[in-house]
Design a protein around this nucleic acid. Structure first.
Length: 286
DNA sequence: TCCTCCCTGTTC
DNA sequence: GAACAGGGAGGA
């Protein structure tokens, strides 16, 4: 379940392997993973990868059109969303597709040839070969909320305050809303709320400035800790080298329903908030 | 603002 | 053989 720290880790491990490589061929094994507004993936052929970035949970491979490109429409970037079970990993040329390989990108780079695999067991992930115009017209992209780590915690709290002040829904649901804040999923929402000692069911507009600042501080802290440990691996997640993360060993709340709270020792409660599995400590979080 | 669906492997 | 995992779209 790649969230911000996992996607950041994928981008960091992928970058040195694909930078300055040229896409020579694309094999789309499952056409439904391509967004309807995408250019045909064949338009990626000849393009050179000049950067690998992250925005929220999105991976962006920035592209330069082939030299002497004329007339035809070329993508400026390839957007990849791993959703639940997506993986992006280069393999040696000739490696046969796996059972859940959705797309293959053949690359010719400074370090030789390779094939970038997009694997996705549950086929929730998506690919989008985008021009700047097509990207700007994508609602999800246009409405994406602020980056949680782009500014200090107090500035983040000031960005969030007006977005939460009119919302009576549970604070956890709003943390998961990519329009409010980009990159947070179920793991880091539960972990941040636990560390901030805030009940996930509390109406968002009931948080005062102090609580919101605490939440922003704890959210940033937990995201940074996880990035340091190369993210969390529940079952599917791997970085672009095939390595697992380590932060799952540091979970205080996520997946620990019924186990003792690391703060007070009482059992953690498992419930549903906004349809999502949620674990919290009824004694410590208010 | 909440519910259902998409998708498939794993767990109960 | 059903329940569950869950990000996001779409509908009630």
């Amino acid at each position: 379940m790649p969230e911000l720290p996992e996607v950041e880790t994928v981008v960091r491990t992928l970058r040195p392997q694909v930078l300055n490589a040229r896409i020579t061929k694309v094999e789309l094994l499952r056409p439904s993973v391509v967004l309807p507004q995408s250019l045909p993936l064949d338009s990626l052929c000849g393009c050179r990868i000049i950067a690998a970035d992250r925005r929220g949970k999105l991976i962006l491979l920035r592209l330069l059109p082939p030299p002497g490109a004329d007339g035809g429409e070329y993508p400026a970037c390839l957007v990849v969303h791993l959703r639940m079970t997506g993986r992006l990993m280069p393999h040696p040329t000739g490696t046969p597709p796996h059972a859940h390989t959705r797309c293959l990108f053949h690359l010719e780079g400074p370090h030789g040839k390779s094939v970038l695999f997009f694997d996705d067991v549950r086929a929730f992930g998506l690919l989008f070969a985008a021009t700047p115009e097509r990207l700007a017209a994508w609602d999800f992209w246009r409405e994406l909320g602020p980056e949680p780590l782009a500014v200090p915690a107090d500035a983040l709290a000031r960005q969030l305050a007006p977005r939460l002040s009119s919302r009576r829904g549970p604070i956890k649901s709003l943390l998961l809303d990519q329009k409010i804040l980009a990159g947070i999923g179920n793991i880091y929402a539960d972990e941040a709320l636990f560390r901030a000692r805030i009940d996930p069911r509390r109406p968002a507009n009931s948080l005062d400035a102090t609580s919101l600042l605490t939440l922003c501080r704890e959210l940033q802290a937990v995201l940074r800790l996880s990035i340091e440990q190369c993210g969390s691996s529940i079952r599917d997640y791997r970085d672009a080298n095939g390595n697992v993360g380590a932060f799952q060993n540091s979970f205080a709340a996520y997946g620990r329903g019924g186990q003792p709270c690391v703060t007070c020792g009482r059992p953690l409660e498992k419930t549903q908030v906004g349809g999502r599995a949620t674990v919290y400590c009824p004694h410590c979080q208010h």
